[in-house]
Write a protein that binds this DNA or RNA. Structure first.
Lengths: 250, 250
DNA sequence: GATTAGCTTTGATATAGATCAATCAGCATA
DNA sequence: TATGCTGATTGATCTATATCAAAGCTAATC
């Protein structure tokens, strides 16, 4: 869902965008409409940049929470490790998204965040964010919307896991990725997966073999073309029908 | 999870509690530690009380969002209606909990909230809450923790739906209810369900027959005693083992 | 006190997806 | 060019849960 920024002056928007360019905080600062001084203030919070290589942790479950992380570029997964050693993926995250919201409640991270490709994030010390929210209420309001959207997203995943079958789950998943790529200016019908079949399965509550079979089935029906990690959506409307009840993962 | 209030003076706590008694906003105001003036301010936001009879809606999906609702007493479910007519339960909610967080992002309710028994709620106009959060930062901070806790809770449900089997799901569900009753001063081992088998099934991603069989199985093993809606937990430790990997619905 | 209507339980059967197993493709390293 | 290694596909079973069906119990209503 893109934000409507028509209410802000052209100049403001330009400045905000340039401020965001420093740190790519699309999620957090783009739609807020700040004046010069406020931009300065926000800019101060998000100074810390960090690079993570593919396979490295951004944070680990159990560690103390201090900062949220805005993804500047790259692709990450979040997952919880069960004590039997296997991990369950709770989400895949890309540019512009905010990580760490779950840790605010206890100030302990409840999940691991691992880069699926080389990534770059901005660190946002949470205490600072709360302080600045008081000075810039529109920023605070926006932050509340982001948290709320995460809750809606989770409810949609619960729905998917609770009532959809394998093929419908995979269709929802692909359409969700498709939409997120589109929003970011990439092709909605032609993209590369960053995660393995096993990680997809973990996220969708399926075994990797089932995921693989579901891919093959959609390919047999000419709805998508699969070449390992490369996916081409040939018929997005039929894919939407496959998804079943319209509720896509938001 | 009870809040540690030892950092606040005895007097403060008494006053907060009495303020809460007016509206039972345990979640929202108890742990914050406010002075007299601040209590006055908070009291002003939450003035509107509302009664809902069993079966009635507190809010419906699609309607405009204006207020959060703090449950003063009673028991509600939230659910989304799929276009095929069947509904999926996304949560059960009791005294002290906060409803409507999902609607902040779009200002449209994304789910229905229906009373499972006669209930009473306090209406909290969200705009007012945000304004007051600026004056009383500790309130704002607490609100953030509540939202974050909802995200953690949802992740745990995702885990349950994605990887646990029927009996484990039911055990998790019962232990979750048990803990929430305990926190509220009721018996943790002896309580009445407010929802039907079908509603439990919808929440847990199971059919009602499967829920019923899982109840019977746990009863056969003498772990619980089931008499229709009345549940007695005979061996909470074995129930915890049944739950499998320790992650309970928080 | 009889009569529905709404839940719940239980049994029999069907099926989606898990599990087990074999093979294959791509990619990195020797 | 050979040699693993990891991940993906596909086939053959197995099993947990859904589905279909029949009673049974409770509470509400006449």
């Amino acid at each position: 869902m893109l934000h409507d920024s028509s209410q802000y002056s052209h100049l403001d928007i330009k400045q905000i965008k340039s401020s965001c360019a420093t740190c790519s905080l699309r999620e957090l600062c783009l739609p807020v409409g700040l004046n010069d001084q406020e931009i300065q203030i926000v800019g101060d919070v998000v100074s810390n940049k960090r690079k993570i290589r593919r396979g490295e942790y951004l944070h680990q479950a159990g560690l103390k929470f201090q900062s949220l992380f805005a993804i500047r570029s790259g692709f990450l997964k979040t997952c919880v490790l069960e004590e039997d050693g296997r991990q369950q993926v709770t989400g895949f995250h890309m540019t512009g998204e905010l990580l760490g919201l779950d840790a605010i409640s206890t100030e302990i991270h409840t999940c691991d965040a691992i880069a699926l490709e080389d990534s770059e994030v901005c660190e946002i010390p949470f205490t600072k964010l709360e302080e600045i929210g008081i000075i810039v209420p529109s920023l605070m309001r926006h932050f509340h919307r982001i948290m709320s959207r995460e809750i809606v997203r989770d409810h949609n995943v619960m729905l998917l896991l609770g009532s959809k079958k394998a093929e419908e789950r995979l269709a929802s998943f692909l359409l969700n990725l498709s939409r997120r790529f589109l929003i970011r200016g990439y092709s909605e019908s032609d993209f590369n997966l960053r995660m393995t079949r096993e990680e997809i399965g973990s996220y969708l509550g399926l075994k990797l073999e089932t995921v693989s079979r579901a891919f093959s089935k959609l390919q047999d029906e000419n709805i998508i073309t699969v070449d390992h990690k490369h996916i081409r959506i040939n018929d997005i409307d039929r894919l939407k029908i496959k998804m079943g009840n319209s509720s896509c993962i938001t």
